[in-house]
Computed example of a mutant assay.
Amino acid sequence: MEIKQIILRHLKIELLNPFTTSVGTEYDKDFILVEAQSKSGLSGWGESVSILHPIYNEETVQTNWHMMSDHLIQKLYEPIEHPDEVSERFRSIRGNFNAKSALEGAIWDLYAREQNLPLSRVLGGNKDKIEVGISVGIQKSVRDMLLQIEKYVNEGYRRVKVKIKHEWDIEIIKAIRNEFPHIQLMADANCAYTLDDIEHLQALDEYDLMMIEQPFDHDDIFDHAKLQAKLKTPICLDESIHSVEDARKAIEHGSCRIINLKIGRVGGLSESKRIHDMCERHEVPVWCGGMLEAGVGRAHNIAITTLSNFTLPGDTAPSSHYWKQDIIEPGVTMESGFIHVPNVPGIGYEPARRRIDELTLRQKSFPIR
């Protein structure tokens, strides 16, 4: 591949409903859309998952724009034989995983289009459809939570994840389990607890949860091992895992039994594949988490979830759950709890350019010398 031009677009899209976790509430989503144009006349698309404020990790939309503009794009000037080369070229720049992933994702999409193959197949996936779970934010009342879950269960979602925090945890999970004794249920703590809460968290063992996601600090592996030794319920690590080395250490130390794999968090599809393969060798299941992606990022999630060790339903809900109108055509849809994997070249969806133009706040082009 020879890249002709990289175009960055800063978009803002309004969420249909506010989404609340232990770290705050989101009403809309700012993100960067990446278009990589090749000399062959094709375009590949990627999406940054960073938000405006550094509350999930240290990256933001503004830092992503800076890193891509001033440091990362320059490393794409030479021809690229395979997308795996991109992560190697970026290795000298520490961190900035969201920014790296957005650019690398556009290159992967472009590569798949030039190969005239679906991205899922280029990545090594073999599924025709993927299971869909849903993430439910913190609600105003227990009744509101139960009504939301009832709606999602009736719509066919295969797993329900609920956000928890202090004073919105044990009683909430108990109420949900009493109302829905047989659903696949998990709890996501978003780093809300500490070692002082081990005995408190042990109370969750009673409710047959699939997992408790990231109860301790965003950069912790070792304290999670102490907690997992005290829990019957599997711990799933999210924020702590940025690389295949992080995943290896977590598994070797017994810090978790499941890993949430977010493409943007680990720096792109190439590292996602490496983590997936290592977890599969150690019989640790993975699933694809969501970061309120618009359609391009959602399409990348669908593609990676077709790999064999994604054995648990992910957070890749349909476009209509989040947006009045997505930035891709057609939007992502669900049927009986499954998303059918596109069988056309690239990510399988076409960017809706008129819609993208409507949402674009700023744009900058980078001709490749």
Results as ranks from 00 to 15, higher is better:
2 E>P: 03
5 Q>I: 02
9 R>D: 09
16 L>H: 06
16 L>C: 07
18 P>T: 06
22 S>N: 10
23 V>A: 01
36 A>R: 06
36 A>F: 05
37 Q>N: 08
38 S>Q: 08
42 L>M: 08
42 L>S: 07
42 L>Q: 14
43 S>E: 03
44 G>A: 10
44 G>F: 07
50 S>L: 06
52 L>C: 07
52 L>R: 15
55 I>L: 11
55 I>Y: 14
56 Y>G: 03
56 Y>K: 00
58 E>A: 11
60 T>W: 05
60 T>F: 00
66 H>R: 04
78 E>K: 12
78 E>W: 01
79 P>Y: 04
84 D>F: 08
85 E>R: 00
87 S>F: 03
88 E>A: 11
90 F>H: 11
93 I>Y: 14
94 R>S: 12
98 N>K: 08
102 A>F: 02
102 A>K: 07
106 A>P: 04
109 D>H: 04
112 A>G: 04
115 Q>P: 02
116 N>I: 07
117 L>Q: 15
119 L>H: 06
119 L>A: 12
121 R>T: 13
124 G>M: 09
125 G>K: 08
137 G>I: 05
141 S>H: 11
143 R>T: 15
149 I>H: 09
150 E>C: 06
151 K>G: 02
158 R>Q: 15
160 V>R: 11
168 W>S: 08
169 D>S: 12
170 I>R: 13
171 E>Y: 04
174 K>D: 07
175 A>L: 07
177 R>C: 07
178 N>S: 13
182 H>C: 02
183 I>M: 14
190 N>I: 00
198 I>Y: 15
199 E>C: 02
199 E>H: 12
200 H>A: 11
204 L>H: 13
207 Y>F: 15
208 D>R: 15
210 M>S: 13
213 E>Y: 03
214 Q>T: 09
214 Q>F: 12
223 D>L: 04
229 A>R: 15
234 P>V: 01
245 E>D: 09
245 E>W: 12
245 E>Y: 15
246 D>C: 01
246 D>M: 02
247 A>F: 11
256 C>F: 13
260 N>G: 07
261 L>Q: 03
261 L>D: 01
264 G>W: 01
264 G>R: 04
264 G>K: 01
278 M>C: 01
281 R>G: 04
281 R>H: 10
281 R>I: 00
285 P>A: 06
287 W>D: 03
289 G>K: 04
290 G>H: 06
290 G>M: 09
291 M>C: 01
294 A>T: 10
296 V>L: 02
298 R>V: 04
304 I>P: 03
305 T>P: 03
305 T>R: 03
305 T>C: 13
307 L>M: 06
310 F>L: 10
310 F>A: 08
313 P>F: 02
314 G>F: 09
319 S>E: 10
320 S>M: 00
322 Y>C: 01
323 W>H: 10
323 W>N: 05
324 K>R: 11
329 E>Q: 11
331 G>L: 01
336 S>V: 00
337 G>I: 10
338 F>L: 09
338 F>P: 05
339 I>N: 05
342 P>N: 14
342 P>K: 09
343 N>G: 06
344 V>L: 13
345 P>G: 07
345 P>I: 02
350 E>R: 12
350 E>V: 12
352 A>C: 14
355 R>A: 14
356 I>P: 08
356 I>G: 05
359 L>G: 11
368 I>V: 13
